[in-house]
């Protein structure tokens, strides 16, 4: 399933979607960035509530398929534009991290 399809099926919105055809291979949930870099796999959708610029670098380096901001969190100012520029997908979910994960489970 691609990030674009995941967005449509899960009822999420896109803050940045420069690579919507990227395949999603799994899910990782976490807010501590070093944990994410230590544990998230390449191609996974990363559910978090962190919204600062560093998430773009972390997503790039960990090579996740997309960042999925839960709990209605929106990216900080300038972060969506940065993500667009760097080729990092950011989706937004109005639901809790748990509810968001359930939707991913159904979709994947």
């Amino acid at each position: 399933m691609t990030v674009q399809q995941l967005m449509e099926q899960g009822g999420f919105t896109a803050a940045a979607l420069p690579e919507g055809d990227r395949e999603v291979s799994g899910v990782y949930i976490g807010d501590l960035l070093s944990w994410v870099m230590g544990r998230a796999g390449a191609g996974e959708a990363w559910i978090t509530i962190m919204s600062n610029r560093n998430i773009v670098a972390v997503a790039m380096l960990a090579d996740t398929a997309c960042i999925l901001l839960a709990e209605g969190v929106q990216p900080d100012e300038g972060v969506a534009a940065l993500a667009e520029e760097k080729g990092v997908n950011i989706l937004c979910s109005p639901h809790s991290a748990y509810e968001t994960a359930l939707r991913l489970r159904d979709a994947l």
Binding site: L32, L33, S34, G38
Partner: peptide
């Protein structure tokens, strides 16, 4: 508060 400082940096570098 930015999501760093969890004490995982050096362990990740080793890992």
């Amino acid at each position: 508060s930015l999501g760093f400082g969890a004490g995982m940096g050096l362990p990740n570098m080793k890992r």
